[in-house]
Every structure is written in structure tokens, then in C-alpha cells.
Amino acid sequence: MTDVRPDLTPLLGDDLGALAGTHPADTGRAVTGLTADLARASLALARRFAAGGTLWCASPSWSFHAHHVAVEFVHPVIMGKRALPAVVVPSGTDLVATLRATVRPGDMVVAVADAHDDDVVDAMRRGPAWGVETVWLGAGPRPGAGAADHVLWLDTDDPLVASEQFVRIYHLLWELTHVCFEHTGLLTPPACDEEVCITCSDEGRLAEVISVDDLGEALVRTAEGRERIDVSLIDSPRAGDLVLVHAGSAIGSLEDRP
């Protein structure tokens, strides 16, 4: 944003300055789980930014939140902090189609949306196939387990309280991401030294079908790029389907079609 007066408060442990008449509050306890989730999401974002990733911001119902997140990262309120690539996915466009066309492996997607926002549900579940890290901010009933890499969730059912707290969450996401940048040794994920690990092996990688041919093969997109796989083991695969790939074959479909 363009109010570029320097933030006078240090990033950690700032006091309340000129604030008069403060009230005792115990809200810190209630957000313990959330702040631990925020910490992990911030480190993940810092690692992706450090590796050249772009942050895609979406909020189909509250586009102002998506714009606020993006401007926060691109033009920080604290002078001297680096500008980071963050982009709004415009509301009113097909979220999945737009992201599919534009995201690159290594990117990040942050969404501010309710758990029942079908477009966000669909975009988030495609994250592993696109090679993007997903962060989902919301309130009320939670999305299902594993709906996104990072689920930052509020318990409140009050839409106005939720909206205010979303601002807090993404401000903190920005602040903590920048703290992580000071820990250069942690910006590269630890090397995988297990004998067999899920990430390094060919164990059930998620892929999105790009096209299917008549020979029982399909061109798919995974976090590693495009590849041709055998799809003869699954029923009627279609473009856009998510499938699990193992050793060059689709061994299952995530689509639940009758």
C-alpha cells in the first residue's frame, strides 16, 4: 500500500505505544493452533519465494481480501522489505481455468473462502498436480482434512469478525514470511536422506489429465511437468480429471463419477 510511513514498531515484541486504556485480553490462548499453522505456512511461503515462486491470491466472494494480500507482498508497508511477486486472480473469472493456465510448479496459491466454495475446493485439490503450495484462509465449518497444504481456520460464525481476523492473519503471514527470510539456512528444504520416501519415489503422485488418446494413454500434468501415462486401468478418464500415477500408469482416479 502507499502509506509509506515506516512502521515504528519492531517486528517482534512491539508494545502498544501511545495506546491508552488497554483491556486485559486472553485471546492469545484461543489462537494457539492457528498461530502454529501460520508459522508453518510462512516458512513454506518463504521457501517458495526464495526459489522464485509466485503467490496467486484468490477470494471469489471477497475480492478485496485477495487484493489486500497481493498488495501486501508486492508493496510492503515497511520500507526496505523486498517486493515479492504476488498476483490477484480476478473474481468473476473461472478460478480453476485461470490458475491452470498461469501457475507454474513452485508457485503458491492463497485463497480466502468458506469451506463450501466449490471453485476453491477444486483449485486447492489440484495443487499437488500443478506443483503449487496451497494456503486456505476461512471461517466456520472447516474443509475436509488435507483440503489444502495449509488450512488457517477461524472458529467464528460472525462474517464481520471473520473478515477482520482474515486481515490479521494475512498481515501476520506477510510479517512471519519476512522473518523467515532472515534465516537463510532454513530457506532450502532439508535434503531427503531416507532410503525410500514418498516425495522422491514414484508413490502415487497426483496428476491432472490434459488429454486422452485412443490407445489407452493420456498426457498428464504433474508437479514435475508433462508426461505420457497409461490410463487403461481406470474408467473413462477425461481431460481435467485428477489421477494417481505410479510407475507410468494411472492406478486410480480421484473423480467420483457415477
Partner: peptide, 10 residues
């Protein structure tokens, strides 16, 4: 980070 976030939230 989590401790800092809690303090700021508060």
C-alpha cells in the same frame, strides 16, 4: 514465529 504471532494477535 508462533509465539510472536500470538503476541501480535493479542
Amino acid at each position: 514465529l508462533a509465539t510472536s504471532a500470538e503476541a501480535k494477535w493479542d
